[in-house]
């Protein structure tokens, strides 16, 4: 087997930096208040609740639902443009490198227990996130927008990042007693769902990303066009399937819409056909090592 290289460590460091960068308003954690500066005009590419006390920018999925809710007044150009640009430049590299909730799931999966491996069932379940995208993140906000009622369906009924980063971190702070007094059935539903998802992530690799995340579904639709990501040199590939076997996600081929571009497959390719690229520029992989040889 080829040498593993440094991509896993680099990826973990980038994930940590991204999580810190998204939540750089450290004073917010101490004061139990959210950031209200001008950076909140922008969205970060990954799933990160804007009600997290540390969040310095908006969540793209929350912003999309609110833009759809307000679409009777003005078309959702801004958020759609941002999501399209993120998807075209980075694709699901965002999921693999720049999503704090993805990092949390990966760390939970490191807890030593028996693991559920991918199977035809998990592959079928991975289609659920496209339904959630369509129903909760698009159709419900659009339907209620017709009645002039803003209803971000995914944020309200499902989003575990909002519950963890927003609800838990805000409500635990002593200064937010008034918010705690307002908790009801919806809060307990979301907290139960969060606990279920986090528990599932201990046994199932990135359970939320694979089965439920509408943002990953959206970026997945653009992943074949994305500039940055894991690419396969078709001339070298022998279709041995080693890459698909080692991948913990429900991929059919490297770089397809289920691939979070983590690069785990690069080191197992016997013909060195896989590399991490930005367009034609090789950033990591055997092809780069070969170019460096005299």
């Amino acid at each position: 087997m080829a040498k593993r290289g440094r991509l896993p460590l680099t990826r973990r460091l980038i994930q940590l930096y991204a999580a810190l960068l998204y939540n750089a308003h450290l004073r917010g954690f101490a004061e139990g208040k959210i950031y209200t500066g001008s950076l909140k005009n922008l969205c970060v590419p990954g799933l990160n609740c804007y009600s997290c006390p540390g969040a310095v920018a908006a969540c793209p999925l929350g912003a999309l639902q609110n833009a759809i809710s307000a679409s009777a007044d003005r078309p959702a150009f801004y958020v759609v443009g941002l999501l399209l640009l993120f998807g075209l430049l980075l694709g699901r590299v965002i999921c693999g490198f720049l999503c704090p909730f993805g990092l949390i799931q990966e760390l939970l999966h490191k807890i030593p227990t028996k693991k559920v491996k991918k199977s035809p069932l998990t592959r079928k379940l991975s289609r659920l996130k496209y339904v959630i995208l369509l129903v909760f993140a698009v159709a419900i906000p659009a339907w209620f927008a017709l009645k002039n009622l803003p209803l971000p369906g995914f944020c309200k009924y499902i989003c575990p990042a909002g519950t963890l980063e927003g609800a838990v971190l805000l409500l635990l702070h002593p200064a937010n007693g008034a918010l705690r007094a307002m908790t009801g059935g919806l809060f307990w539903w979301k907290l139960t769902l969060l606990a279920t998802i986090l528990t599932a992530c201990v046994f199932v690799y990135r359970a939320f990303c694979r089965f439920l995340c509408p943002l990953g579904a959206l970026y997945g639709l653009l992943s074949r066009l994305a500039l940055l990501g894991v690419k396969v040199d078709a001339g070298r590939c022998t279709d041995c399937g080693a890459c698909v076997r080692v991948c913990p996600m429900d991929i059919r081929r490297v770089g397809d819409r289920e691939c979070v571009q983590c690069g785990t497959c690069i080191s197992v390719c016997p013909t060195r056909a896989i590399s991490f690229r930005a367009g034609k520029i090789v950033l990591h992989g055997a092809a780069l090592q070969e170019r460096r040889l005299p």
């Binding site: 909140k40 920018a57 908006a58 309200k156 909002g162 519950t163 927003g166 809060f187």
Partner: peptide, 13 residues
């Protein structure tokens, strides 16, 4: 939207 606490996100309805 982002500078106010999102009541839907944190499960307050």
């Amino acid at each position: 939207k982002a500078v106010k606490i999102c009541s839907e996100c944190i499960g307050l309805g």
